[in-house]
């Protein structure tokens, strides 16, 4: 694991000048992950904020080979790149060691890209798939995804007289990926550089598919000040809404345990998308949110041998 000083000396692979919003969690995650690669890296990107904001023709913010083709197929695209690499290695046409990474948002990963991801994981390509999860379709203007938490306001789960925002809980993609039995799966957050770099490094060193689900705030969608990004993301971890853990060859390990588990309300309170939940008539929803988080947390602690 490199020190912060060493990381700062690594080449900038996603360069300044890209047009992601101030306070966006995605480039924080991407820069940390790419800094963790101690060998050359080739990236694929699903359609989404990260892709459109970094490559407005004729400019590109990428200092590494990079490909975007469509929304649902980042995993299949990088699988093709990695297959060509293997074919060329076998024929002696290339001898460098290269890492392969695919980036997708929660839309491109939890939803429309799930099939391509599952296929690529099952086939065992050597690549890292990173989901930068901002919990809704932010690129198209804040629509709900299957990663959006219960009760969140989005433009397709608006708060109205009858409905209090999204009525379903999010699905647990990290567990779905872990069920593929691939060698390395992790959940991390863009606010904890040490945790994220450590996991990315492990993932790049994995001989086979690896996956990291990174919580990365979108202040436009979550409705908080751009300057609050790190704090809001970290609060999700402290409330155990977004636990940091890894599954290495089937073995679960909690990589961060909050000293004091904070109530979910603290996280809900700092985001405009949950404002309506704080009204007295929606108290039951906050309680349901807390119960769900508690149950999930307990399950995870058991898996990690912590309970």
């Amino acid at each position: 694991m490199p020190t912060l000083k060493e990381l700062a000396k690594r080449p900038e692979r996603l360069t300044p000048g890209h047009r992601l919003c101030a306070g966006c969690g995605a480039p924080i995650a991407v820069r940390l992950i790419l800094a963790a690669a101690d060998k050359p890296v080739v990236a694929a990107n699903a359609t989404g904020c990260l892709e459109v904001s970094t490559t407005i023709f004729p400019y590109t913010a990428w200092n590494i080979p990079w490909i975007h083709s469509a929304f649902e197929n980042a995993a299949a695209t990088i699988a093709g790149v990695e297959s060509m690499y293997r074919a060329k290695r076998r024929r002696g046409e290339i001898d460098e060691e290269i890492y392969f990474v695919a980036f997708g948002g929660d839309g491109g990963t939890y939803d429309i890209g799930l099939q391509a991801l599952s296929g690529a994981l099952e086939r065992g390509h050597r690549f890292l798939y990173v989901c930068y999860n901002n919990e809704a379709y932010m690129n198209t203007g804040i629509q709900r995804s299957s990663a959006t938490p219960l009760g969140a306001w989005t433009t397709t789960s608006p708060v109205g007289r009858v409905l209090p925002g999204k009525t379903q809980w999010r699905k647990n993609l990290t567990e779905i990926v872990a069920a593929h039995g691939i060698p390395y799966v992790a959940q991390s957050v863009a606010s904890n550089w040490r945790d994220l770099v450590n996991k990315a490094e492990k993932a790049f060193h994995t001989d086979g598919p690896s996956f990291i689900n990174v919580l990365a705030s979108c202040n436009r969608g979550w409705r908080h000040e751009p300057s609050e990004t790190l704090k809001v993301m970290q609060l999700a971890v402290e409330c155990c809404i977004w636990p940091l853990y890894e599954v290495e060859n089937g073995v679960y390990r909690l990589t961060y345990k909050p000293k004091e588990k904070k109530p979910v309300e603290e996280w809900l309170r700092v985001q405009g998308r949950f404002r309506h939940l704080l009204a007295p008539e929606n108290r039951h929803l906050v309680e349901a949110f807390q119960r769900y988080v508690d149950e999930e947390w307990e399950k995870l602690l058991k898996r990690c041998g912590e309970a």
């Binding site: 490909i67 391509a116 086939r123």
Partner: peptide, 17 residues
């Protein structure tokens, strides 16, 4: 691959390589 969409997606990634 697990679908034709992924077949051509993988071909695109491979051909670009």
């Amino acid at each position: 691959v697990e679908s034709e969409h992924s077949a051509l997606s993988a071909c695109i990634g491979a051909a670009a390589s």
